[in-house]
Amino acid sequence: MRRYLEFATAAAMAVGLTVSAASASEWPNRPVTLIVAAGAGGGTDATARWLAADLEKKFGKPFNVVNRADGGGIAGITELSNATPDGYTVGILFNYAPYRFLGMGNLTSDSYTPIAQYNFDYSAIHVKADSPFKSLADVIEKLKADPQSVAIGCGATCPSSWSSALSKVLIDNGIDIKVLRWVPSAGAAAGLQELVAGGVDVLTASVPEAASMLDAGEVRSLAVLAPERLAAFPDVAAAGEQVKDAAPGGVFRALAGPPGLPVEIVDKLEAAVEEIYNSESFQKSMGDRGFGLQYRDREGLLGWMKTHEQDTETVLRAAGAVQ
């Protein structure tokens, strides 16, 4: 009887594996949910919708974007990590490491299945159009004189991917970031609205995300934390033009799935993202809006994720957030 049960169990497992393999080979045969852990109107949402539209054309099934911006994005990337690994829930992953160090969830590279990176944008510092600040150097000077005098919007939770890049610059310029006034928001789009309304004095986000408000004359971009000026925004100074210590920093965006996503599905999605990334239409959509193009396959993305975690810990230790 015992041998029979062992045989039956093994047979059942074999059938389950066969069904799983068959399901993966037939994927997708129904709509796919694409989780975006950011609000509508920001860069993560915009680039995700372009990618989703092209994935739908590629596979012939809807890729439905679902925004989950609660908690500065923690709700969405946690939902992605906990999803069933059947290929019908994937999502856009971005700088996730701060959440773990802030005690908001134990999210690491093991929490996801990397698929492919398609974007990297440098952080920038924005102010309201009538702000007295004319440069990043002005902001640093003011913070040195009175650390509590400037409300700094993080463009998400604090510290966020955007504000962490600024934090590194402030630390390198001798400012104790633990005593500054950091203000969270539900994403870059919400943060920009708060900036225009006067709720914060300075906001960290990418330049493309602020483009419409720049064009409308509602905000000004003081500097971008890039090695040089962005081709799409040549009037925005690189931070190194204004301050001595201004290390580049910003946000990556990539397609990822929950842990355990079958390799057959990862193969299909990785190949699709690479094809879409190299297409003239996707390159034009990204370029016209000024979004940075950067591709990494699954292995390259995994390596970058580990680097991102190490760099984030270094910054947050300096901020006193990690003991």
Rank of each mutant, 00 (worst) to 15 (best):
A254S: 12
A254T: 02
A254Q: 08
L255R: 00
G257H: 15
G257D: 15
G257S: 15
P258R: 10
P258A: 14
P259W: 11
P259H: 09
G260E: 06
G260P: 05
G260C: 02
G260L: 05
L261P: 13
L261K: 15
L261I: 01
L261D: 12
P262R: 06
P262L: 05
P262A: 01
P262K: 04
V263C: 02
V263G: 09
V263H: 09
E264W: 10
E264H: 09
I265P: 06
I265S: 04
I265H: 06
V266F: 12
V266C: 12
V266A: 13
D267A: 09
K268P: 00
K268Q: 06
L269E: 02
L269H: 06
E270R: 08
E270I: 05
E270W: 03
E270S: 07
E270T: 07
E270Q: 11
E270H: 04
A271Q: 04
A271L: 10
A271M: 05
A271E: 08
A271F: 01
A272W: 13
A272E: 13
A272S: 14
V273Y: 02
V273S: 06
E274L: 15
E274N: 10
E275S: 14
E275W: 08
E275I: 11
E275F: 05
E275H: 10
I276P: 01
I276L: 03
I276T: 12
I276N: 06
Y277I: 14
Y277T: 13
Y277Q: 11
Y277H: 12
N278G: 00
S279C: 10
S279N: 03
S279L: 07
S279R: 09
S279V: 08
S279T: 08
S279I: 09
S279P: 07
E280K: 09
E280D: 10
E280L: 00
E280C: 03
S281I: 03
S281M: 05
S281E: 13
S281T: 10
F282G: 02
F282C: 08
F282I: 04
F282T: 02
Q283D: 09
Q283A: 14
Q283F: 01
K284C: 01
K284V: 05
K284H: 10
K284E: 12
S285A: 11
S285C: 02
S285D: 13
S285I: 04
S285L: 07
M286I: 05
M286K: 03
M286R: 02
M286L: 10
M286P: 08
G287S: 15
G287A: 13
